[in-house]
């Protein structure tokens, strides 16, 4: 439970440091009003808004990641009890990992780890 209070205190302190930077900036800056500028396009004007339906070329990797990531939900508690439970726990967890690595192998062969 102490983690929550600690997180709040630490976040507040870190944010205060950043706020301090902004305050010093306001004192020193050449002009407080931010400059309205075009995005950098090698000296060309923009023709459309950049924020758009961005074609992510590695979406298959995200799916793979979501599945593999769930492994960690179990692996953190597992790491604490391996020494007590012995070989059975090792076999079980690495069997689990082997299954997931088969999935990675499959995805690799399908070319899912590359930009489409």
């Amino acid at each position: 439970m102490e983690e929550l209070g600690a997180a709040l205190v630490l976040m507040a302190l870190a944010a205060a440091v950043l706020a301090g930077l902004y305050a010093v900036h306001l004192l020193l800056v050449v002009d407080r009003e931010p400059l309205a500028a075009d995005p950098f396009l090698s000296g060309h004007p923009p023709t459309e808004h950049a924020v758009s339906r961005y074609h992510v070329r590695w979406y298959a990797v995200t799916l793979l990641f979501l599945a593999f990531d769930m492994e960690m939900v179990f692996m953190f508690p597992w790491a604490l009890v391996v020494a007590d439970l012995g070989l059975a726990a090792v076999v079980e967890m690495f069997g689990f990992l082997a299954i997931l690595l088969v999935g990675v192998l499959y995805a690799w062969r399908e070319g899912a780890l590359r930009w489409t």
Binding site: H25, L28, V30, P34, L35, A37, D38, P39, H49
Partner: peptide
């Protein structure tokens, strides 16, 4: 960077 002005792009 504390002296340099901030920027705002369009939208």
């Amino acid at each position: 960077l504390l002296v340099v002005r901030r920027r705002r792009t369009q939208h």
